[in-house]
Design a protein around this nucleic acid. Structure first.
Lengths: 227, 227
DNA sequence: TCCTCGACTGTACAGGCGTTCAGCTTCCTG
DNA sequence: CAGGAAGCTGAACGCCTGTACAGTCGAGGA
C-alpha cells in the first residue's frame, strides 16, 4: 500500500475526495463543538455532500468518529516518529517538540480536538495521555543518565509534571490566553511561556526545606452570596 | 434570607426537597456524562420525579444547568473564603488548599464537573480558571514579598504553572491515575504527587544554563501504520 | 452495446429530545 | 370550612436525530 511521498502543494477543497472532505469536516466540527454537535447532517453540509453519502462511506456516524480518531492518531504519530536515527536522544526530543508545536499552531483545531479527547474521559484520551507521559518519562530518564537532569526521587510523577507544563499551552490554550492575556499565535507570548518554564526548572522557586507546596489550589469566587 | 447553620447530620435522599434532588441529579449527570447526556428525562428519572417537575421548578433545561453552575460556584466559594482573618496569608493559603482537597476527595464528581467546565470552553470555565490563576498570582506575590519564594521574572506565567500543577490531580485525575497507575483516593499516592511537586520547586531539575525545555511534548503513537 | 459497480442523492421512518398544557393532589391560610 | 397557591403528573406537540432504502448517474470491462 505504499504511496509516493507528496510534495507540500497547496490543496484546494475541490481536489480532495468526498471521503476526505467528510473526514475533515467531521474533524473540525468535533474539535470545535464536540461529538454530539457534529451531526451527520452538519458534517454533510460542511463537506458539501448529502447526509446519505456520509453513511455510504463510513457506515454510521460512529464510523466517521472512529475514522477521525485514527486519523488524528496517525497525524500525531507522524509528528512523533523519529526521522533521523543518527540524532542523539536530546536532539530527537527537541525535534519532536518543534514539530509538535509547529503542527498545533498550523492546525489549531488539533489542540481543541485533543482537549476534547482528554476531557471527554474516553479510553482514547486516557491512552494518548499515557503514551505522552511514557515518552516524557523516557526523555527524563535519558537526561538523567546523560547528567543533564538531576535524578528525581519519583521519575514518573516528575515526568508527568513536565509533560503537563509542556502540553498546557495546547490543551488549555484558551484558558491560559484568557487568564494571562496572552496570544499563543504570537511567537513572543509562546516564548514567554517557555522562558518561565525554563526558569522554573533551572532555578528552584523555593529554598530547600521550606515547602509551601507551591500550587495555589484556591478556587473560584462566589457568584451570588445571598445569606 | 439568613439560615441557621446546620449541623453535619447525615442526609438521606428522602429528606431533600424535590428541587434539591433534581439539582443533585443534574449535577451528577452533567459531571459524569456532560450536559448533552443529561436529558430532562434522565435527570427526572435519577431524581425520582417526573420530567414535568424538572421544568416546573427550573423553567427549562437551561435553567437546571444554570442552577447547577451557580450551585457549584457557591460550594467552591465556601471552600475558598477565608474563615479566620487572623491567620497569615501563608496559613490561609494552606487552609484553602486543604479544604479544596478534602472537598474534591469527598465529592469526586466536583473534579469531573470542573473538568467538563474547562473542556466546554464556556465563559464559566474561562472565568473560573482566570480567578484561580489570579489567586495563584496573589499567593506567589505574597510569598515573594515574604522572602519565601525567589522573585520570578514572569510572575503571572509562573503562578499559572503553579496553579496547573496544583489542579492537575483534580482536573486530570483519571488520566494521571491511568498513566501513573496511581489512586488519588489513597493518601500515599496523593502525597507522592505533592512530594514530587515540592521537590520540583525546591531543587532545580536542570543546572542553570542548560535548558532542555523540560516538557516532553511527544505525542501519541501510530495506530495502524500501513504504508 | 450491455452490464455492473461504485459514487451519490431524496425520501421516509422510528425514536429521543425539549417544551406545553390541562388536570390532579396536597397543603397552607384566611 | 372554603379557596387558592404550590407541588406534581401524563399526554401530546413539533423538531431533530441516526439510519434504511430505493433509485439515479457515470465510468469501465466483457
Amino acid at each position: 500500500m505504499g504511496r509516493a511521498p507528496e510534495e507540500a502543494t497547496p490543496v484546494r477543497p475541490d481536489d480532495l475526495t468526498a471521503r476526505a472532505r467528510i473526514r475533515n469536516a467531521a474533524f473540525a466540527l468535533i474539535a470545535q463543538d464536540g461529538v454530539d454537535a457534529a451531526t451527520v447532517r452538519a458534517i454533510a453540509r460542511r463537506a458539501g455532500v448529502s447526509p446519505s453519502l456520509v453513511l455510504h462511506h463510513f457506515g454510521s456516524k460512529q464510523g466517521v468518529v472512529d475514522e477521525v480518531a485514527t486519523w488524528v492518531a496517525d497525524v500525531l504519530g507522524d509528528v512523533t516518529r523519529d526521522t533521523d536515527p543518527r540524532a542523539g536522544p536530546a536532539e530527537a526530543h527537541r525535534r519532536r517538540q518543534l514539530r509538535f508545536e509547529r503542527m498545533t499552531t498550523e492546525t489549531p483545531l488539533l489542540g481543541a480536538y485533543l482537549r476534547r479527547m482528554l476531557l471527554d474521559g474516553t479510553e482514547n484520551g486516557l491512552e494518548w495521555f499515557t503514551r505522552a507521559v511514557d515518552a516524557s518519562v523516557a526523555g527524563l530518564r535519558q537526561r538523567e543518565a546523560l547528567g543533564i537532569a538531576r535524578p528525581s526521587a519519583d521519575v514518573h510523577v516528575t515526568a508527568a509534571m513536565l509533560a503537563l507544563l509542556g502540553f498546557a499551552p495546547v490543551l488549555l490554550r484558551p484558558h491560559l490566553e484568557h487568564a494571562l492575556r496572552l496570544d499563543f499565535d504570537d511567537e513572543d507570548d509562546r516564548r514567554r511561556w517557555r522562558d518561565a518554564e525554563t526558569a522554573l526548572l533551572t532555578s528552584a522557586l523555593y529554598p530547600r526545606g521550606t515547602a509551601p507546596d507551591g500550587a495555589s489550589r484556591a478556587a473560584g469566587g462566589r457568584a451570588a452570596p445571598d445569606e
